[in-house]
Structures are given as structure tokens and as C-alpha cells.
Design a protein around this nucleic acid. Structure first.
Length: 803
DNA sequence: GGTTAGGCTTCG
């Protein structure tokens, strides 16, 4: 056995013993004498190291002829190579895909997989003491070595990797530079303070939250107060990465040139897993949406800037939103006319989602460069209750103790600061998706709508106390110019189309709110229940009973992952997976993994570490998707289902546009699957003084509650928002007098129901405005934690006619 | 080959 890695730039043939001569891959055949011959090629595939019985190992790789002059010899330029024993083990540790290797002492066999993999009809077997390999790494960049944080010597200049445990955004020092202050750690568990001075902001690390990973080149270790600290020195450079397991290993910025190889990716991924195992990321994250803000707390806010205005010489107002509504009333701020950058007013619905943030002193400078539309994170924002000393506070309302003001105090302690978030940051992508669903701003219609509300209000609503008391109202975002009608009128005439009504909620179904979550096919308009975990677990366990090996299509190649839990040494921890050949070639194999023979529980746990998992099973000797009742895709906590009727049943070759992020839509499209979307379906019984009316809330449920149905499938907060909203509209033990009056836009349409042509109604274009959805539920309401999934039937809403 | 900062809440 022999394996040697050669220094950069030295050709493998230069090092090979002189008595060996090269045979081009295209000329290899079973009759050729291969004693004293070498084969040279680039490693295009490196399989996992597989442990056999009696301490033997096997590893399969594919090498490709890399001499362009030999390309016309034959089509068979890529050949399977099997390595055994310690050679396999060393190869696994030392060789990376892309390396060029020179092998000798091999034997040539007939490849049993040639038909299937379309590779060379022969394979090479390297086994025993006579076989060996030389490796050259094709690398343009100089190799960096990184020092662990417990190995820093005073005065040394080093390169380091670390996980951020504390940071301050760059601030103006008293000298000539901006200063970034951070503290990092690594597997050695040392906490090391770093100070970075750079004149230009773009040379500073982009750190978005604790848990992010930094790689710094040329930092100097210096002893200060008996601790080693790191300071940037000549030639300093830094790149930072998202610290979440499963995210692509891409630096936050693309503007600088840097080198990133497989080893870097591995280092980042190792640090991510380690940080996750230490709880470094989730425990210290202080990101809080507006809906969860506690008075007196300090928090980080991820938001979009809508408008800004100077308030005083030391204070700037930032008007921001994050798509959630703060349950506490917020202080209004009066702005001088003509100084606002961005819109000066918004629709009532939008205004109710906007927070006023006052930034003081040193932060004003940074605020100057912000533009409306920017996505920001504001660090260590202070929620101050009952403040009446706010500059620009409206004089119309005296400050109330429950009104909140948001201050970014002067100074940089506790990391106070603002950062514009990069576009490729997952938080920005998520925020964009949420904001897309919010009501459009219709400023020009605002006055009209307000007038209509006054004119058209039915007599009941003259008693405005109910609304005042409950603090609940609704807002229509449609552009219909029409007067509200009484329910009896509507039922007598029931013409198709839109109607406005002013009503109370008499009752609703389902009372168990998680049962409102359904799966909807936008192609065939069918609706079904979300299968419960027991059913899904059963499908997985049935499928794993058929996990015997089967032929995988040529676009997939097999691999394995470790089963979560259990001991590392145990062989049965390896779980069979299939990877897309296309993605393997692009070094993004982990982006999509086909899991074979896993249980539901294992799949869920693996989904924490891999972005896209598609469970598969053997069916008639071929790979197939599981039963359509099971999710066809796991993405983190999210599960995606397919429409049985509208999906192709065969597992087909996906083709990815490499520039595109691989998400559920891309995968569904690639696999020929019709994706089912989560919808929230409720049947409401409305009433006014004249009649009652059954209506559905389906198409616009998300708008109505201001939650995404998909969030309600995984997220306790979203579920609780729906539950609490319904409790306010229809208190379980309250009297009719306490139910708020709601202004609704209804759409009437004709649909078949039990063979009869009937008029159905849905609530559309209406948003519920509640100041206290998440905080204080009405008395007497039981708040049992609800299961997110359930298969139970709801008789009355199962056979729904969909518009 | 160099001063700055070297975390540790708040005037509003």
C-alpha cells in the first residue's frame, strides 16, 4: 500500500517510478498486461468508505482521462476504480474530487455495471501491498493552515476559523478607522476577543447573528489583560458564513475575491454542527418579531424600512415592518412636514403593522445611508413602555403605560447597531415572502373607503361600544364601491359576485383549530385532510420493509448517511441514500437526498441537517416515491405533499438549473409532482339582526388572520394566532353582546353541493385587525396545546365547493 | 506596518 500527496503544481507522472509506463484509460482492456503500467485520471466521483467484515474496507471511485490529447481514443474515458483495505481508508481521508491521481499495481476486471453506468467496460482493482496511488491536488490558491483557538501564541500571525458568540457592527473609532469587535469560539471551547480596524466598511466582517462563522486570514495574537486577543494585521481578510446547518456554504458577500475549497466547506460544516450541538446559535439569538415583543425587553428586529425622517438633531425615526402586528399599542410620532424620505402615510391596514423606531446619536450616521425598501436588522432595540418623553410624541394622546416606544440608544454596548441585510440571506427571503401576502397599499382609496364606512353602516353598528371594548375590527382591502346589505336581503336575492356585510360571528367549525388545516390542489381543486403522524409513520415502516436493494436509475448514485442517534461505530447506523449525479458533479449533492428505508422519525431528524429529503422505496425492483399520503418532501420542519390525481407516479430524472435555489417548487416540478398547498378552511355562521348565513373562509384565510397556512402546519405561534383570533370573534363562553361587529367582503358563487346547484359564499379581501391576538385570551378559554396535524374528519366542511 | 478598542444597556 502506498499513497502520497504531491505538492501543488507537480505533475503526478513526474514522481512515478521510472519503470512504470502509462496506459491511457481508453486503451484498458482485460487482456492487456498491466504489470508495471500506470493509469492517470481526475477523480470525478468519490464514494463513501464502506467497512466490510474483518476490518476490511472498500471504496469506489470514478476517474476520468484528463489528458485532452487522448480524448479521441475511445468513448470509455471514465472508469470505475475499487480500492480495498488501508488504501481505501487513506484514499477516503486524503483524496478529494477534482484531484488527479496516478494508480499502479492494479488489476483489470470486467465491469458488471457497464451497461447501467455507461462507464468503461472494465474496472480497476487496487488491493494489497503492490498497489499504490500518487495524488496531485489541482489548486490555484496557496494553501492556508488554520490554527485552533487554544493554540494561539502571543505575537504570532495566524489564520483562524471561529463561531461568533458576540459581535458589534463596525463603529467609528476615535482614530481613523471603523472598528469591529467580536468574540469567537471553536471546538477548543476558547473564547477569543477580536478587534478589527479597517478604514473601509466593506473590509469588515458581515456578521448577522451570533452563531455565524468567520474565517480570518492574517490576524495577530496579542496578550491583553492576561488573555489572548486577535487583531487584524497587514494583508488581513475575512469572510463570513451563515452558521445554520444545511444552508449552502456561501459567504455573505460576493464582492471580494476569496478562495474556498472543499476543505473550507468541510470546516464550515464541522463548525456548524459543533455550534448546533453546543446550542450556540439558537440559545443566544435575540431575534424577535413585532408580534412577540415584551415591554422593557431588548431584542433584535429583522425588518424592512418603509420611510425615515429626522426628528431632532440627535434622533432619526425609522418606520419599519416585519409582517407581524405588535399586540401592544405603539406610540405615534409626529413628523415635520416635508422631511420624510419615503411615503408619509399608509393605508390603515398597513399602518397597523408599522413600528416606529427612534435611533439616537452615533446610529444616526448609519441611518443616513439607509433607503426605504432596505432590509435591516436592528440590534439590541429597546421596547420602552409608557414613555411620554419621546421626541415628536403626538400631543393628541397622553402617553399610556401600555404604549411602547422602540429606541436604539446611543453607544455600542451589547452590540447596539444596524446592519443592512444581504439579499441572499434566508431572513430576507423569508421576509419578502411574508410581506408579499400583506394587503396592498391603496392610499387613493383610503378616503373613499372611510366615507363609505360612515354612510353604509347598518344601524347596529351605531353602538360602537362593542368594537371599542373588544378592540377588534376588520378592514376590507377590496376596491368595491358598495353599501353593506343585511343578511336577509342577501339571502333573498343572492346574486353572484361581491357583497359587503356587517355581521357578528355566531358559530364556526372546526372548533379544534388544527383541523382547519387542509391540503389543496390548485390543479384539480380537491381538498383533503393532512394525514396524521401515525398514518405517515405506518407508510414509512411499510416502505422500509421493502428496502431491499433495487436498481437505481443512471441519474442517481448510491451513498449513505449516518442514522441519527446510536453509536458511531455501529455499522447499521448507515442509511442508504441516493444522490443526484448532476448535483454530485456540481458538488451540491447534499442539496437533495433520496432516502431509502428510513423511519419517519429518522427522516424528521435528518431533515434538521439536510435541506431537501425525498423518501423513496423499492417497488418492483425500481425506486419509487412512497404512498401519496406520505409527504414526498421534507424541508426542515416543513412537509410537502403531492396530489395523487395530478402527479405522475414514476420517479423521473430531475433537471436543475444550477443558478436556481432548490426549493419545494423546483423539486415538485423536477419530479413531475403536483404540489399540494396548505390552506386553512373554516366554515363560519354569520348573523345580523335579520338572518344568519353560512360562509367559508378559505381563499383569503391567510389575509384574514395574517398568517401563512404553511406556517400553521409547523409553527405554534401561527396556530395560536388563528386560535386566539377566533376566541376573540366568538368567545366560547361569552354573551352575544361581546362579539365584535365585522365588516366583511363576501363573494357569492354557484357550486354543486350534493348534486344541487347552490349559492355559496366566501369571505374575501378582509383582514382582521386585533391589537391583542397573542397576549391575553378572554377568560374561561382553555388553551390546551394543539397537535399540529390530524386526520380527523370534519363532516360539514369536507365536501367543500371551491371557487 | 501604524492610533483606534480592549463587549457588559438606557438623556431621549
Amino acid at each position: 500500500m502506498f499513497i502520497a500527496v504531491l505538492s501543488n503544481g507537480i505533475g503526478v507522472e513526474a514522481q512515478a517510478p521510472a519503470h512504470l509506463t502509462r496506459i491511457p484509460i481508453g486503451l484498458i482492456n482485460t487482456t492487456a498486461d498491466c504489470t508495471n503500467r500506470t493509469v492517470e485520471g481526475k477523480v470525478i466521483r468519490k464514494g463513501p468508505l464502506v467497512k466490510l467484515v474483518s476490518d476490511n474496507f472498500i471504496l469506489k471511485a470514478v476517474i476520468q482521462e484528463h489528458d485532452a490529447t487522448l480524448n479521441d481514443l475511445s468513448q470509455n474515458l471514465s472508469i470505475n476504480v475499487f480500492l480495498f483495505g488501508s488504501l481505501a481508508k487513506s484514499f477516503s481521508e486524503v483524496v478529494s474530487e477534482g484531484d488527479v491521481v496516478l494508480a499502479y499495481g492494479f488489476t483489470v476486471g470486467k465491469s458488471p455495471t457497464a451497461k447501467k453506468d455507461k462507464l468503461h467496460p472494465c474496472n480497476l482493482i487496487l488491493s494489497g501491498d503492490n498497489a499504490g496511488i500518487y495524488v496531485t491536488r489541482v489548486s490555484k490558491a496557496p494553501k492556508y493552515t488554520y490554527v485552533k483557538l487554544d493554540d494561539l501564541k502571543d505575537g504570532s500571525v495566524v489564520n483562524i476559523y471561529g463561531v461568533v458568540v458576540f459581535f458589534k457592527q463596525p463603529f467609528q473609532s476615535h482614530g481613523t478607522d471603523f472598528c469591529s469587535s467580536l468574540k469567537i469560539t471553536d471546538q477548543s471551547k476558547q473564547n477569543i476577543g477580536c478587534t478589527i480596524f479597517c478604514e473601509k466598511l466593506e473590509d469588515h466582517p458581515i456578521i448577522l447573528q451570533t452563531g455565524d462563522i468567520v474565517r480570518m486570514h492574517r490576524v495577530k495574537a496579542k496578550l491583553f489583560n492576561n488573555s489572548i486577543t486577535l487583531i487584524n494585521t497587514f494583508g488581513f481578510s475575512v469572510v463570513t458564513f451563515n452558521g445554520s446547518v444545511g444552508e449552502p456554504v456561501e459567504p455573505w458577500t460576493c464582492s471580494k475575491s476569496f478562495h474556498l475549497d472543499e476543505e473550507d466547506r468541510r470546516t464550515v460544516e464541522e463548525l456548524r454542527s459543533w455550534a448546533a450541538s453546543q446550542g450556540l446559535r439558537s440559545l443566544v439569538s435575540s431575534a424577535v418579531p413585532l408580534s412577540d415583543i415584551q415591554p422593557k425587553s431588548y431584542f433584535d428586529l429583522t425588518c424592512q424600512l418603509l420611510a425615515k425622517a429626522p426628528i431632532q438633531s440627535t434622533c432619526t425615526l425609522l418606520r419599519v415592518w416585519d409582517g407581524t402586528r405588535c399586540p401592544h399599542p405603539l406610540l405615534e410620532i409626529i413628523v415635520e412636514p416635508g422631511v420624510t424620505e419615503g411615503p408619509t402615510s399608509f393605508s390603515k391596514a398597513k399602518e397597523s403593522l408599522i413600528a416606529n423606531v427612534l435611533v439616537f446619536d452615533n446610529h444616526m450616521n448609519f441611518a443616513k445611508q439607509l433607503k426605504p425598501g432596505d432590509f435591516l436588522r436592528i440590534y439590541n432595540l429597546h421596547a420602552i413602555p409608557g414613555s411620554n418623553k419621546v421626541p415628536g410624541l403626538t400631543s393628541r394622546q397622553p402617553a399610556k403605560m401600555d404604549h411602547l416606544a422602540f429606541h436604539l440608544h446611543g453607544g455600542t454596548s451589547f452590540g447596539k447597531g444596524i446592519r443592512i441585510l444581504p439579499e441572499n440571506c434566508p431572513d430576507v427571503q423569508k421576509l419578502k415572502r411574508v410581506l408579499e401576502f400583506l394587503p396592498e397599499d391603496r392610499e387613493q382609496e383610503l378616503n373613499d373607503l372611510e366615507l363609505i364606512e360612515v354612510w353604509c353602516t347598518p344601524p347596529e353598528s351605531l353602538d360602537g361600544d362593542a368594537l371599542e371594548r373588544s378592540g377588534v375590527c376588520t378592514e376590507r382591502s377590496c376596491s368595491h364601491q358598495m353599501q353593506p346589505v343585511m343578511l336577509s336581503q342577501l339571502k333573498q336575492n343572492h346574486p353572484d359576485g361581491p357583497h359587503h356585510v356587517r355581521v357578528q360571528l355566531r358559530s364556526y367549525e372546526p372548533r379544534r383549530h388544527h383541523q382547519a388545516l387542509k391540503l389543496f390542489c390548485s390543479k384539480c381543486s380537491s381538498i383533503q385532510d393532512v394525514p396524521d403522524d401515525e398514518v405517515v409513520a405506518g407508510i414509512f415502516s411499510e416502505a422500509s420493509r421493502h428496502s431491499e436493494s433495487c436498481s437505481s436509475p443512471p441519474w442517481l448514485q448510491s451513498g449513505y448517511v449516518y442514522r441519527p442517534g446510536g453509536s458511531l461505530a455501529s455499522l447499521d447506523r448507515a442509511l442508504g441514500v441516493y444522490l443526484c449525479t448532476q448535483l454530485v458533479a456540481d458538488e451540491t449533492a447534499n442539496d437533495l437526498i433520496f432516502l431509502h428505508g428510513s423511519t419517519l422519525e429518522e427522516t424528521c431528524r435528518l431533515a434538521e441537517g439536510y435541506p431537501n429529503l425525498v423518501p423513496v422505496m423499492s417497488s418492483g425492483g425500481h425506486l419509487a416515491l412512497l404512498d401519496p399520503s406520505a409527504p414526498f418532501l421534507f424541508r426542515g420542519r416543513r412537509r410537502y405533499y403531492r396530489c395523487q390525481r395530478c402527479s405522475k407516479a414514476i420517479l423521473r430524472k430531475p433537471s436543475f438549473d444550477m443558478l436556481e435555489e432548490i426549493d419545494e417548487k423546483v423539486i415538485a416540478e423536477a419530479l413531475g409532482v403536483q404540489l399540494l398547498q396548505f390552506v386553512l378552511l373554516l366554515k363560519l355562521e354569520l348573523q345580523d339582526s335579520t338572518d344568519t348565513l353560512n360562509v367559508l373562509l378559505m381563499k383569503h384565510t391567510e389575509l384574514f388572520f395574517n398568517v401563512l397556512a404553511e406556517d400553521a402546519s409547523t409553527n405554534e405561534e401561527a396556530q395560536s394566532r388563528v386560535r386566539q383570533s377566533m376566541d376573540i370573534l366568538c368567545p366560547p363562553e361569552g354573551s352575544m353582546g361581546e362579539r365584535p361587529w365585522l365588516d366583511l367582503c363576501l363573494t357569492a358563487y354557484r357550486a354543486e353541493d350534493d348534486g344541487q346547484n347552490q349559492t355559496c359564499y366566501q369571505i374575501c379581501n378582509t383582514t382582521l385587525l386585533t391589537p391583542l391576538p397573542n397576549m391575553t385570551p378572554p377568560e374561561g378559554v382553555s388553551h390546551k396545546r394543539e397537535e399540529p396535524r390530524c386526520s380527523s374528519e370534519i363532516h360539514s366542511v369536507n365536501n367543500v365547493n371551491v371557487m
